[in-house]
Each structure stands twice: as C-alpha cells, then as structure tokens.
Design a protein around this nucleic acid. Structure first.
Lengths: 207, 207
DNA sequence: TTCGGCCTTGGTCATATGGCCAAGGTATTT
DNA sequence: AAATACCTTGGCCATATGACCAAGGCCGAA
C-alpha cells in the first residue's frame, strides 16, 4: 500500500468511527486498529487526533464538490442543475463517505484553535452552493428573494438533517427523498388555491 | 436553595457547557464548578454524567412543549397555530435554554444503552409536532401531501439547523427568521408564474 | 550490493477522568 | 431537645488517553 492509500484508509476508518461514536469518544488507538496499524504508525502520519479530523473534513469537501460538479456537468438549466446537485449531495451524505456527515455534525468537537481548518473547508463548501443558487436565482424564475445566504441555510438545513433520520433499506431511497425535498423547496406546502395574492411582496419584505 | 433549584442549576450549567464544548469534552468537575458545588455533591444528585444529560434532555422537551403550547393557546386557525408554534420554537432554540440545542445535537454522544431515555424524549417531541401538522393538514388548504413525517423531517431540519448559524445581535431576530422560514415552507421559492400546472399531482406521487 | 530514506514497532509517560465514599455538618420534623 | 433525613466535604483510585520516541526493518535507487 502506498502512502496515500494508507492515509486514505486512516481517514476512512476514522470517519466511520467518528460518525458512529462521536469524535471525543473515539480513541486514536481505535482508529489505528481499524486501519490495521499500530498507534505509533498513525502518529507518524497524523501527529494529533485533531489533524486527522481536519484532514478528513478537507477531503470530504473536496470530494463532495468534485462529485456534485460531475453530476451537474451536462445539465444546462440552472434550476435543474440545482435539483440534480441536491440529489447528488443527498446521495453522498446518505450512502457515501462518512466524512461528510462528520464535517457537518462534529465540528463542535474541535478546540477553538483547530477550528480554522474546518471553517475554511465549510466556507469553501458554502461558497460552492451559493454559486449554484445565484445562477438559479438569475433565471428570474424564482421569487424576488433577496438573501441567498438565508435560502442556502434553510435548504442546507433540511437536506443535512436528513442524515439524522435516514435509515438504509427502509422506505425511501436518497433519490426519492431528494425529489420530494426539491418539490417542497420549490413549490411550498400550501395549495395554490389557498394562498394570499401578494406572496411575492411578502417575500420581498421577509427575505 | 432548595433541592429542585440546585438540580436546575446543575442542568442549566451542564447544558451551557455541553453546547459550548460538546458532551464528551465536558468534565463532571467543570459542571460542578460552574454550579458552585464540589464534584461529590454533583455525584449525590446525578450518579453519572449520562444521568445529567438525560435529565437535561427530558426537561428540555417538557419545557419546549409547554412553552409552545402556551404560545398557540389562543390561536384557533391550525395553520396559524403552526406558524406561531414554529416561531416560538425558534425563539426557544436560539435564545432560550441551551438544553434544547444539546438534545438536538449531542444525542450521538450517549452510549447505546443510555439512548433509551433520549429516544423517549425525542419521540415525545416529534409526536407533539405531528399533532400540529396533522391539524394543519386537515384544513384542506395544504397540498395533498401524504406523508406528514416527511414534512416534519424537512421542516424540523431547516428550523433546527438555524441554531448552527444564528448569531445573536447580528442581522435577523429569531422572529424575522421564523417569518421568512414559514413563507419558504408554505409558498416555496419558485414564482407562481413559472411553475408547471400539475404540481399537486407531483406531490401526490412524491410525498 | 550497498546506501539512505521511509515507515513500523512496541513500548513509555504524565495527565485527566468518571465514579466513588466515609465522615461530618445542617436543617427540618416530632 | 432529640432524632432523622438530607446534603456537603475533601479526597481516593483504577483506568484510559493523547502524545511521543528510540531503535530497527524494509525497499527502491544508485
């Protein structure tokens, strides 16, 4: 196994354990054992436990952006790109690497000093989605929403939270969930026949 | 200070510390010190750290349900009740007790055995919201949404996630966020003039 | 074949932690 | 005033943990 392969193995096993037990409750010895190496070897690769977490998060963001990019590559309509991108994101979050989950839910574990690397990774990821949202907004087919950041927060929250309740092989697939989610996000839950007439004006004020 | 007052003090300080540092990273000594008692005294009240977390979560749910109940008491329209309830929930989550936040984000910290108490608390809270949603649904003003649990998951996720980005005294108030959130949830982000005609049929299939 | 760098081995060490308790004090009840 | 239940005190202990390292082996390059 090459150096890169070994390091990947470590990050993968660490992500699995962090997700399962939480960061603080996972020991470096466990990570080493799961990666089939001795604690000393792990220390050689990553001097501290924080370093493992940060590396894992950086890689998760790289991977997520790359995979979503591929998924939307051949889709031209910005709103459809958003839909496809969200679908891919949910697939990654629910069935892919645990690292994404860990990044989203274990960032509080880090001592304040170490949060720097994490903040950079998160910010990179948020900026990526803001780009997709801005393009969708620019089509003019959306409401006159003024605050893309707020939209991202809401959508991101609903999508991310799926990871807390989703169970494999029970009910809906990630794709089905994504379809329902996008309909919810795009069209809302109230019937068109029971809406006030000035919705867009309301949005202008509220967003 | 009475026994109940002292116990409350402990739970309050524990919630603050858990939220700040995470469950595993907080020591019983810290909780004791913050509650102005010695570790032994804390042990007398709560034999183990897990017990503190569970008690804190139970109380958070009791309190949240009670406060939302009061807030919607005099509102009769089910959809308006939902809106007011969500607003109250966001206020509690963002400016109230840290215990609610801890319940939502630190449940993974518990050893599997101790998750029982937590699951009960969470289930109680979810059932409460399902009740509000069912009443709103029964008005017939919503889309023909078939799966209330899915709706709750999406709404809950978006609302809960606010706690991860909200900063006090910067930008919107909890009430403003709640208003925008409800508009998003009820009416969707796409303009009515750019929607397909068969949205309700789509929802029938997707939800 | 020899050399040199990369990686592993098998520990050690100081520290922090959760859980625990015997003894003593304080307040409330009878 | 006496008894009793309640709570605090101050410290102990076994264990687990993150970090660390000297020594040696493996393997490709020269």
């Amino acid at each position: 196994m090459t150096k890169a392969e070994s390091n990947d193995r470590v990050l993968k096993e660490a992500a699995r354990l962090f997700r399962l037990q939480g960061y603080a409750a996972t020991t470096v010895r466990e990570i080493a054992a799961a990666s089939e190496m001795l604690p000393g070897s792990l220390h050689y690769r990553y001097p501290s436990k924080d370093d493992v977490l940060i590396a894992l998060m950086e890689r998760a963001v790289d991977k997520a952006i790359a995979e979503v990019d591929v998924a939307i590559e051949h889709v031209s309509d910005p709103i459809e790109r958003l839909r496809v991108g969200i679908t891919k994101y949910l697939e990654l979050l629910l069935e892919g690497d645990d690292a994404l989950f860990v990044m989203l839910f274990d960032w509080r574990s880090l001592p304040i000093g170490a949060k720097r690397g994490l903040d950079r990774a998160r910010h990179r990821y948020e900026a990526y989605w803001d780009g997709l949202l801005a393009q969708a907004y620019a089509t003019g087919r959306s409401r006159p929403v003024l605050d893309i950041e707020l939209v991202r927060h809401f959508g991101f929250g609903a999508a991310t939270w799926v990871a807390t309740w989703y169970k494999k092989d029970s009910g809906r697939s990630p794709k089905q969930i994504a379809d329902a989610f996008f309909a919810f996000l795009a069209y809302g839950l109230l019937d068109e026949n029971h809406r006030p007439p000035d919705i867009n004006a309301q949005f202008q004020k509220l967003f």
